[in-house]
């Protein structure tokens, strides 16, 4: 845990008049599991979009594995090994869960990593679905995605990311919309991936679950970083408490 995989320096993004991200900097070590928290609208998704190229920053830089990836196209960034889930799930609704995975498996990144092997893609896709908790020997993997419950779609998002064999996995509120039991069965999957050395950034509203597995947590409020430290320090942090209380007052 001493090699830096990601360095974010003074990154900022404005949408019209809204400052979504304000001069945020942080580092991520290889194998680290970093949590990102913050009240609604604090800029978490925007930060994920900035890291993955879906939104171009106004200023600041993102260095990944020693490469400057600021403002690169999303598919280039994915090709370099950063996979992300979408908070609003984005499956291919008209394809089966199984065929949803064929698409990332078809990318040149995966073909290269798998040494040009492609013929066994069906097995790979089924294995991936099993890894995220699809019942292998049922009809579920072959059901058209639009007919699957939300929790399955969330896990399909995860499988789509894992198909890329990423070096950095970014999860944007993976647990939102999952049932308690789904969260309970997905947590160990993430812990296992992390234990195997995968670096993970996890944006999450379910603080209890997040704090159990995260090594470090960053808190955002109004687009700015207000805290950075181990999970146990978060609940005592005055700035974090104020941010969450403030947002609860508004509701």
């Amino acid at each position: 845990m001493d090699k830096t995989i990601l360095t974010v320096e003074n990154i900022s993004k404005n949408f019209g008049g809204v400052a979504a991200i304000v001069r945020v900097s942080f580092e991520l070590q290889e194998g680290e599991l970093l949590g990102i928290i913050g009240p609604n609208g604090s800029g978490k998704t925007t930060l994920v979009n900035l890291l993955t190229g879906f939104v171009k920053p106004d200023s600041g830089t993102v260095i990944y594995q020693g490469r400057n990836i600021t403002g690169k196209m999303p598919y280039k960034i994915a090709e370099l090994g950063i996979a992300r889930t979408f908070q609003m799930v984005k499956p291919f609704y008209q394809l089966s869960a199984f065929k949803n995975l064929i698409i990332p498996l078809y990318s040149s990144r995966v073909k290269k990593l798998r040494g040009g092997k492609y013929g066994d893609r069906d097995d790979v896709a089924i294995d991936l679905l099993e890894d995220v908790g699809f019942e292998r020997d049922s009809f579920v993997p072959y059901k058209i995605a639009s007919s699957l419950p939300h929790g399955y779609l969330k896990r399909l998002e995860l499988a789509r990311c894992l198909a890329l064999r990423p070096d950095l996995l970014i999860l944007d509120e993976l647990f939102s919309g999952m049932s308690m039991s789904e969260v309970a069965s997905t947590l160990p999957i993430i812990e296992k991936l992390n234990a195997e050395g995968l670096s993970i950034i996890m944006v999450e509203h379910r603080l209890k679950e997040l704090f159990r597995i995260a090594h470090r947590v960053i808190a955002l409020n109004f687009g700015a970083k207000i805290a950075d430290g181990p999970p146990r320090t978060m609940m005592e942090n005055e700035a974090v408490k104020a941010a969450y209380l403030g947002s609860e007052d508004e509701d």
């Binding site: 598919y75 996979a83 992300r84 291919f92 990318s107 198909a163």
Partner: peptide, 8 residues
């Protein structure tokens, strides 16, 4: 967007 995030 989902295809792009699949490195394509």
């Amino acid at each position: 967007r989902a295809v792009m995030s699949g490195a394509i």
